[in-house]
Amino acid sequence: MEGWNKVGWSFESARVPMTFSAARRPGEEDVEHAAGHLTTLCGIPTREVDVYRHLFASRSAIACASCREQSVKAPTQPCVQEKLYRILDRSEGPLRDELREALRAGTKVPFWANGPAGAMLKHYIKFDRIVQGSEDVIDLEGFDGLLGVARAVGRKRRFLVLIPAEREAIVAVEEPERRFGRLRCLTRPLAQK
């Protein structure tokens, strides 16, 4: 459930099911298990399975019945708004306070990616579109660690959140991108013409 200040929206109501990596025993291609930390959910040690880079699908015809049952019973996880809120909770500033309030109301977070700071700044940040908080963003140009970039699009503002590893998050405001008279969130670099 995603909302923009929807009645009844809360972090609790927006929690999402827990996800698990898919795993298979070598030679058993017709059964897929849900990989936990040390074992699959049905108890097979992870050293005895191959773990895949896709998620376990409990509704799949090849899903292990026991793993399916256990995955449904697993606790839920925070929604993206709650995760970003918790990161911002450790920071200070009026933009952060405004964004935290918007996240509590269910504002959408359509984009969040992590990677090397240089690549993230080059591909996902348009410095000329930042209308508030650009000084802090520019200070990150020499940063050499991992960087998270998130966008939260509210009714009146489009927030840019930079999450450098081992540092406080930076919140800026981008000018809205208008296409066909509607706000549009930039979620990937535009192609050069």
Rank of each mutant, 00 (worst) to 15 (best):
A172G: 02
I138C: 03
K122P: 01
R15A: 12
G93R: 02
R151Y: 11
Q192A: 11
M18D: 06
A102E: 15
A23E: 06
G154S: 15
H37I: 11
D136E: 12
G36C: 04
D128L: 00
A117M: 04
N5P: 01
Y52W: 10
L146P: 00
R86E: 13
E12A: 12
E135D: 12
K193S: 14
K193D: 11
L99I: 03
E98Q: 08
W9T: 07
P78F: 05
A105R: 14
G43S: 06
E166S: 11
A65I: 12
H33C: 10
E69K: 13
L140M: 13
P75T: 10
Q77S: 08
F143W: 05
H123W: 10
Q70W: 09
A102M: 08
T40A: 04
A165M: 13
R167S: 07
G3F: 02
E135L: 05
G36W: 06
W9G: 09
E48P: 00
R182P: 05
T19R: 13
L103T: 03
I170V: 15
F159W: 14
G154T: 14
G8C: 06
V51F: 07
F180D: 14
E177K: 07
L190S: 15
E48C: 06
L99Y: 04
K73P: 00
A150G: 05
A61S: 09
V49G: 05
R15H: 04
Y85F: 14
G36H: 05
W112E: 15
A102W: 04
L140C: 05
F127T: 01
K83Y: 04
E48R: 11
Q77V: 03
K126W: 07
L103E: 06
E98C: 01
R68D: 02
E29I: 11
V109N: 02
A169Y: 00
A63D: 01
A102N: 13
Y85H: 12
M18Q: 15
G115C: 05
A65M: 08
V137G: 00
D144K: 14
R90V: 10
A22F: 05
F11D: 02
T40V: 02
R25S: 08
S134Y: 09
A191F: 09
F111V: 11
W112M: 14
S21P: 07
R188F: 12
M120V: 14
G3D: 02
R90F: 10
F111E: 04
G3S: 12
P110E: 01
R90A: 15
M18C: 12
N5V: 03
R188I: 08
R24C: 13
L146G: 10
E101P: 00
